[in-house]
Amino acid sequence: MPSLRDLQQGFADAVFGPQDVAPGFSVVAPAKGAERIAIYRTAVFANYRNALSATYPVVKRLTGAPFFHAAVDAFVRAHPSTSGDLNVYGGSFGDFLVAYAPAAELPYLPDVARLEWAIDEAQRAPDRVRVPEAVLAALTAVPGESLPELRFALDTSCRFVASAYPILRIWQVNQPDHVGDDRVMLDDGADTLLVRRDPRGIALERLAAGDFAWLAALANSAPLGAAIDAAQSADANFDLGIALRTHIAAGTIAAVATD
């Protein structure tokens, strides 16, 4: 008799295998083996289509359901789920779409997917109490010569998405409650976006190139000095004072790192 492990491996191989092929293990009513595995195959792929439809509604709207479902099916085969929690599946869908040939005519699609994943992650991030006054007080207490080595903790919901396409406008005009002009000019320019969750919900903010480079570096645990260098090479007019005040007040910068 095959082991439990062999039976489970055989079952999974059959579900991800071709249609109309009998499973590689013995079933009661062998003539119906392929047909019954097909029921599981349909259910499994439907679960992933539903889950990713909830995570990527704008990608689905841009491509239409048949295209989207085919893309999800291909993604599932290339990047299998590794968790029993479907809510955390699909984070690399945007990266997958870059090389997904049928999507080549929609070059902005991978970045729209990355934006939707950033929103999804921000929705699931830890709840935090905002204390901008405490951040300011901690910053004031740091001696000037230590500032370049200072690190900040950003709000845990912060995500950064950059695109060569106007993905914020694409996202906005594809919301179910959008009214009015829904045209998007693809050469309207690049977007550098901050996604985060504040007490009112998800906030999408277009940042200046310098602010984006600065915050993204801080999010990556860069010290303040290196983050300023990154900001200034992105935008010679980067103003550290304004950036600090703005993003401490907004809660983007949640704390002065203490380690």
Binding site: M1, L4, R5, F11, A12, S83, G84, Y89
Partner: peptide, 21 residues
Amino acid sequence: WSGIGGRHLNDLLPLPYTEEA
């Protein structure tokens, strides 16, 4: 069961009703 070999199927899959299982 729902997954094997690190790959999840995220569905409720049947067990073989054996002593081992």
